[in-house]
Computed example of a mutant assay.
Amino acid sequence: MLNWLIRYLANRWSSSKRITKLNILTYHRVSEFHDPKNPNTITLALFEQQVKWLIKHFTVLPLPEALILQENNKLPPRAVCLTIDDGYQDSYDLIYKVLQKNNISATFFISTQGILEGGLWDAEIYSAIFNAPTDVGSIYCDGMLFDLSSLEDRIKSRYRLTEYAKYLSLKDRTKLLTELKGQTSFNPIEHNFLTEKQIKVMHCSGMTIAAHTHSHPILMKENNETAFAEIKLSKELLEQIIEEPVEYFAYPNGRIGQDYNEEHVDMVKKIGFKAALSTDWGSLTNLKLERFKIKRFTPWDKKEIFFALRLALNYRK
């Protein structure tokens, strides 16, 4: 009865005589077990369950295939795609292995600075906060106090500082990180990012490799020259690795009007991408109109019925 209800509603809400809508899920990090230092990260067990629920109730397709099918009005009802942003090591060690096991494909949007340096700016904040000596009870950054007196305080400070640094320009973010490292006896981060070899393996096994800027800036915080260079460099570096065109792009943070605007859409078109994805919630209804501002969504529920019904409901948005 449950399976029938979910399929009935998803069929009804995803398709009409004129067009079939596409749900695109977005993920970031997956941890093997619950990590108290990363309470917002989905566990491997839950990710595996969600993949099984998707296969059970929906039609999981590679992003390039789904876009072509919708463009030609041949997309099947209940169609979904999986995307993973940033490019950390768990993308290969955990996410990719689950996808392989279940014979499905996903698109990995990779910020290329992580390949070269072992991680992105958020990994530097994580390392500085959690590896700071126990006698460092607090730090000051940009005139703000961050409490490090307990593990709970460090977790809160890490998220607060990360959210603040996210909306700084690259120049100001670098200044903040320098200030942070000077107060925490910072050691270089361990390599915790996809390697060139892993990216090649994923690409050759049917995963779609896509761009996510070089150093993950908020594009609206940069001048146009810097923003253009960030987008272009990530495409070029990934193409050198997989030796094929990189055709899809995801805007960092990804909300229209807050993180990127129409000028950045024009940049993405000029650089030669086929489509670009945001993080605004909703489904893809009209590829012709939404090709460079495609919406995504991921249900957060831990129970099958709520996860599946919430995703089905997203076809209406």
Rank of each mutant, 00 (worst) to 15 (best):
P133T: 14
G114C: 02
D122G: 00
G114E: 01
G143A: 14
Y96H: 11
V98W: 00
L148P: 01
W121Y: 14
Y140I: 13
Q89K: 15
D86Y: 04
G143I: 14
T83Q: 06
K101C: 08
L116M: 12
S127P: 03
N73I: 05
I95Q: 15
D135A: 03
Q113I: 02
I84Y: 12
L67Y: 05
I125M: 07
I68Y: 02
K74N: 08
G87Q: 11
I155R: 03
I110H: 05
S149W: 00
L151M: 11
T134H: 12
S150D: 05
G119K: 15
P133I: 14
P76V: 10
R78G: 06
Y88K: 09
D147C: 00
P77T: 08
T83V: 04
N73E: 07
I155C: 03
S157E: 03
T134V: 11
I104P: 05
I129S: 13
L82D: 03
L69W: 10
D86G: 02
D135N: 11
I68S: 07
L67A: 04
C141S: 09
I139R: 07
E71I: 05
V80C: 15
A79Y: 04
S150K: 10
L99P: 02
L99M: 13
Y88P: 01
P76I: 10
G87E: 10
I68G: 00
A132F: 10
Y88A: 05
I95M: 15
P133V: 14
G137P: 02
W121H: 12
Y88N: 11
I155E: 01
G118H: 10
Y92L: 03
C81Q: 04
E71H: 11
V80W: 05
F130N: 01
L120C: 07
E124N: 06
N73M: 05
L82M: 11
S105T: 10
P76G: 11
C81E: 10
G87L: 09
F109H: 10
T83D: 05
V98L: 00
